[in-house]
Design a protein around this nucleic acid. Sequence first.
DNA 1: TTGTAAGCGTTATCAC
DNA 2: GTGATAACGCTTACAA
Lengths: 339, 339
Amino acid sequence: MLHQTITIKDIARELNISVSTVSRALRDTFDVSLETKQLVLEKAKELNYKPNFNARGLSQGKTNNIGIILPFITNYYFSTVITGIQKIAYDFNYNIILYLTNDSEEREKLIMSNLTLSGLDGILISTCASNYDHVHEVIGKGIPVVFFDRTNPLEASKVRQDDYNGAFEATSHLISQGFSEIAHITGPQDQIFTQNRLNGYLNALEHYGIPIRSEWIVHTGFSQECGSTDLQSLMSHCKKPDAIFAVNDRKAIGAMVQLKKENIRIGQDFGVVGFTNDPICTLITPTLTTVSESAFEIGRIACELLLKHIQKVNLPSKEVILPGELIIRESSMRTTLVD
Amino acid sequence: MLHQTITIKDIARELNISVSTVSRALRDTFDVSLETKQLVLEKAKELNYKPNFNARGLSQGKTNNIGIILPFITNYYFSTVITGIQKIAYDFNYNIILYLTNDSEEREKLIMSNLTLSGLDGILISTCASNYDHVHEVIGKGIPVVFFDRTNPLEASKVRQDDYNGAFEATSHLISQGFSEIAHITGPQDQIFTQNRLNGYLNALEHYGIPIRSEWIVHTGFSQECGSTDLQSLMSHCKKPDAIFAVNDRKAIGAMVQLKKENIRIGQDFGVVGFTNDPICTLITPTLTTVSESAFEIGRIACELLLKHIQKVNLPSKEVILPGELIIRESSMRTTLVD
DNA sequence: TTGTAAGCGTTATCAC
DNA sequence: GTGATAACGCTTACAA
């Protein structure tokens, strides 16, 4: 009795009707009598019938699987996005299949090219790549793709936060607190969201008539460790900054760790602002000012959009930009009481 | 040309051979000549052939998909476990499909019963349930299941950390630091890992001849907020503890937040130890003493074990217990310099 | 070593 | 409304 699964054939046989009728009844099509439909559903329940998705997929050309491709899941932002995606997917009876690129462009391309495309109805991707042939190929095969978080110049649907305005507000806030030597520590230059945050920073400085110093813009990685080393290298210049705007909270925290080591009073003497609103912001001392990203919403909206594309083949692509919100905490307040 | 996919038929036609030969060549079976194999592989590459996993799954009765069922992914521990699982799965050409239960037993059962079992070769689960009929049903159908993290009394393969010893060491450490009024804040009583940590705590007290006070054992939820409220309620007793061992780092941190509010000096006057070794432990002030869990390893080993079960039908089940390691930081050190 | 044909569980296209 | 039957792409006896 091991591995013996119930199929529509079994239902058909027991009910003395044809498989096509059973199939129709189960799918609730219009051309089946209410009576037989009842009978079939009852019998299906009785036998504990579960549809075989491989067979269904093979004959319909769809699978109810969507792929998620992203760099990591071990941070607040991405894991929350996935939770949002999962919610919608689950509600609409889609499975999500997870692929991690480790922020490696090579790996991302490998995954995409090996992708069992026949097994995926659509793809949600936060790309770490700097060119997009591999995405083109997939789109060319008619598989809908929706980008989230990290964006790109392709003609495709995208869901992301408003990086430019968030960065503009963050920088403006530092200026309003009286900081004027503001550095920016960020990630690789080839990411568009990185560029947007940089532009927000630059335009805020410009807007307030503060000179821009290119040596105060540091491009390294996204990790906390990079935040620490970035700060170190900034402090080695003869002219030192009195505040930093970091591309994300992890780097901001890395910088704070280093500032503490150098006995610089965060808030009072040195302003720090991050980006993301990782829950950790409220746990560290001092608490970290940041720009909130609606991670769950981004996941939710991206998934909804993808499902629409899956349902309707030539749906025009669409870009959704969610506003962030500046959340002011101790790390940027001159009046903070550091404990 | 949209959605037009290359099948083995195309390869067969172009090469003037039969589909079965193509199939054999692609699967690298022994009964095909080296020559034709070469030809087929070349042509496959040329046409950019990608196998259809639905078809393959349907005919072989396997899918190369494994399901992961767990409460959340938005914390360090689970997201790291998944990363470990993903690594192995990817290396062996398996996809992982993610299901989140939100720590709801009802939801877990719903997911399991709706599971497109035909679409899954095996399941990795961190169950939040207190009875296991739903798991039995799946195992009964011959789908291999490996439990990770949270354990249970079923006859099945399991991979988990050594909760008992970790808790024993954590508590012993507090005692060795001179704390003697040690409370334990933990999760729901029906989880076995919770019970194990509780037992470790109890036996350590016993071992050092310290009386056990049942009012100092608080069962609530696993969240940080619960940690704060637990501490509050402990401090409302006339006899107050001078240390806590928390079931996880989140609750420990919640307790620390509350201790700070009450102006109690953590480390010097009040010892705190957590469990997990979330990276946040090193970022908060004071840094948090904890028991490390090998999250990535647990994922890796669980996945390897599952793949073995998938390959070999009647592999005897096996329980792997990974040791934790006490990591001593400021929160439990009487000599700590709190900044 | 290769080819033929049946079969995996569904859905879809016809007839009736 | 219902029932044959072909098809989806692949694997796998069995034959040659």
